[in-house]
């Protein structure tokens, strides 16, 4: 879990994570914003279904992968927040049946 040094600043950007609205500041990365909201568990690993969260924060570990605006496997540590972004947790292996449901 992370906290902002300056909580008083106006968080003008609103993003959504699995339906919950989160506040963010310009320039912050998706991964940081999730961690500041107390979310450390970003996805389930495809092999064992165990939870994973950011490890390197520089684009090499691929542990912070999330779905952003419908596109899967986005590195949350490299993507700056944009207003209205919809982020979803990734759940282990994708199944064909999941895609058919949508």
């Amino acid at each position: 879990m992370f906290d902002r040094f300056n909580e008083n600043k106006n968080c003008l950007i609103k993003i959504e994570f699995d339906g919950t609205v989160l506040d963010a500041l310009e320039g912050e990365m998706v991964a940081s914003v999730l961690m500041a909201a107390g979310i450390m568990n970003f996805r389930d690993a495809p092999v064992s279904n165990t939870p994973r969260g950011p490890y390197c924060m520089m684009g090499v570990c691929f542990e912070c992968l999330v779905e952003i605006d419908g596109v899967g496997h986005q590195q949350a540590c490299l993507v700056p927040v944009r207003s209205g972004m919809s982020i979803k947790r990734e759940k282990a292996k994708r199944l064909i049946s999941d895609d058919l449901v949508c």
Binding site: F5, E28, G53, P54, Y55, M57
Partner: peptide
Amino acid sequence: TLPGVMTVGAVQSVLKNSGMYP
């Protein structure tokens, strides 16, 4: 592999980039 285990550089990265601390 547990969430919460990171690198020193990762923590520093969040510190610089987003002004946040653990």
